[in-house]
Amino acid sequence: MILVNVDSLSASELRSIAVQEGFGNADELSREEIISLLEEKYEEEDDKAVREGAPNSRYMSGLTDYRDIGRYVGDLPGVEELPLSYPDTEIHLIKKDSSWLYAFWSLSQNDSDELQDAGGSLSLSVTIENNGSREEYDIPVSFSDSEWNVGIPCGRGFCRVALTGVYPNGRKNVLALSEPEDLIESYWLEHRNEMKYSDSLYRVYLTLVSTKEGELPDNPILREIIEMFRKEDGADE
């Protein structure tokens, strides 16, 4: 998608886009006023491109965007509306990044009624096993909740979540259990002591991942490792 960089467009181009964006009075507005209106509209959408003024973010993405042109597209021959939820009790866990997992679940009407009739409540039970130690905790959730982000550490192990019914007498009943998600395990995070003897390897690593301006890819684990190498390198000097 190619984002429109509004402040480099001519007044006529801007008017044309403004009309498409629903500003019917665009013909009466100055170039600056249109830019201001469009920037306001795009502020959330084009966060990076507009606020940082990155002139060529277009090169990073794949398709040409005709700027909200989709509203001119007639309805495709659609069939069934998607339901808001499905009548099964289940839970899923997906890795978002090295620090966060995304859990979502659904609860069947039967399970929900049974638990509520018994005066019970729902919990998201989180288990994290990391380097041989196990941590377990419960997050109370409401019957209308259906998703949660779970924070995880790096290490050798996994995280899994369960949707648990909690009864007034303290009894717990696992209603659904997710598949385990591996934690991010990294050799260098666990072998910092070897870094001081690996300066030549460090240079090779840096060559692969640093731009001519010295920028690194946007990856927190990589940045942490390179920072640790830098410190070890500095300590040697």
């Binding site: 991010i184 395990e185 990294s186 050799y187 260098w188 072998h191 070897e194 390897l201 090779v204 690593y205 060559t207 692969l208 991942v209 890819p217 990856n219 684990i221 990589l222 490792i225 390179i226």
Partner: peptide, 13 residues
Amino acid sequence: HTVITAKDRSVYG
């Protein structure tokens, strides 16, 4: 970033 952050030690980077 895969080789530097790998579970094993990369020697060819």
